[in-house]
Design a binder for these strands. Sequence first.
DNA 1: CATCGCTATGCTTGAAAATGAATAACGAAA
DNA 2: TTTCGTTATTCATTTTCAAGCATAGCGATG
Lengths: 118, 118
Amino acid sequence: MAISTTETHYFIQGRIWIDSDKGPFLGFGRIQLLKKIREYGSISQAAKSMEMSYRQAWQLIESINLKAPQPLVIKTTGGKGGGGALVTEAGENMIATYEALDQAFLEFLEMKSKELKL
Amino acid sequence: MAISTTETHYFIQGRIWIDSDKGPFLGFGRIQLLKKIREYGSISQAAKSMEMSYRQAWQLIESINLKAPQPLVIKTTGGKGGGGALVTEAGENMIATYEALDQAFLEFLEMKSKELKL
DNA sequence: CATCGCTATGCTTGAAAATGAATAACGAAA
DNA sequence: TTTCGTTATTCATTTTCAAGCATAGCGATG
């Protein structure tokens, strides 16, 4: 049977993040940034690859490190290549934790979207 | 046993909303507005009670009605009291649908917050 | 000790969004 | 036909926020 193309379709969307009592901690964008830093070994390269300003990327990392139990990114200045940034093991664990959470959330959204009857 | 007060605490937060292929449809703020309109019978009164500009409130209702299968709010101009707005039965159903969804989402957040080990 | 690219930071611009003021239109009821 | 408070709409203004520029500091390596 054909489905009418004039009908509006609906779906459920959302965002999820981790807050701390010090303020916003980790969301989708920050995790994406962490992964890019892991990939490139530098904040500036990561920012460029995401079409984000270096300034903003740096601030995000600063904010993350301030709220994390231990630093998630270690930054080095000067030296060979001018320095760089690398994701710590605590950072890796955080990425994994967030991605598991996000996956569960996606499944929740999908389930609720299917249940949705307007 | 005492718990250290210097430790940072974390919790999961999020937002959830209903989108349509015509664009954003219903979120927390719009539902809140619908409920205020139901309470006051007028967009302007509802807006005032939420400290929202009438202009924005009117635009939100316009956007909602355009995307809904049937109008959720009926607006009348002129007449006794100058007119007003009322929430249709379809609107009532939409409020109920969203609130059930939001409740389930809150439970999801709570569950995941408890599971959270950083 | 000169080079290099990155971190670190302040300052200036600019664009986008929300606000508020102002006003027309409306129509039931007195 | 006058009144009233609301809907409906435009416009200039303000506020908010991000982007971009500009530049100093750093230190391993050659």
